[in-house]
Amino acid sequence: MPCVILPRLFAAESIMSCLLIVDASSSLCSVALSRGSEYWSLCEDQPRRHAQRLLPMVDELLIRAGVKKAELEGIAYGRGPGSFTGIRIAASVLQGIAFALELPVCGISSLQSVALKTLRSSQADHVMAVMDAHMGEVFWGHFQREGELCRLIGAEHVGSPEQCLQALKAFDGIVAGDGLTLPAFASCAQDWADVQPQADIMLALAEDAWQRGEFGSVEQHPPVYLRDSVAWKKLDEQPSLLRRD
């Protein structure tokens, strides 16, 4: 499993803070930590093993960074969209730690993470982040470069690949994310198809949110599923032995 610890210096003007971020919104399981101008991260490809790995990775990261739990000032998580179960694993781990250590929290968009990672490796100013939403659908969002970061243009969406392709007709920029691996996107360039949400990228977004005062309560930062319908028939759509009034 790939495992990376990369100390890196942030821009000098950053407000000093000590933030932890956890993400399990894709097949990757990743954690990142900042303290002042230093940062550390761990990332593993752990499909279906996020619950087993996330907390041990948090523990390992803090130990290896020499950061004590009491030093943490805030905690963020990949709030989705993405794997529903993964988002909940990250949300639950975040809730436990935040409640115990009395930390403010923040949810970071997984689509924005995909976009920012792509922008950091390219000259483009616009990215359409497209993630596989399963059940034949994709999540997508249009992001525009803004300084070192990026911002969402419009809203994040869930829908059919055809709906996404429709949105791409008027789009001029890079398309990135694992949604590109769906057959409907075969005619699109696949250069950025392997970009996934990752905690180390999200850390920059969390730092920005921290500086903007956007950290808050757990209730203020719920998971973002985008898809709110369930493939479950309501009672009046189910077969009935008796006549319905």
């Binding site: 619950a51 523990d59 909940r88 639950s92 436990g96």
Partner: peptide
């Protein structure tokens, strides 16, 4: 239910870790 179990288990386990 696995998804339901994971919520309480991850919350409880991380709460204990942090404390």
């Amino acid at each position: 239910l696995v998804g339901a179990l994971l919520v309480g288990a991850c919350l409880g386990r991380s709460l204990a870790w942090a404390l």
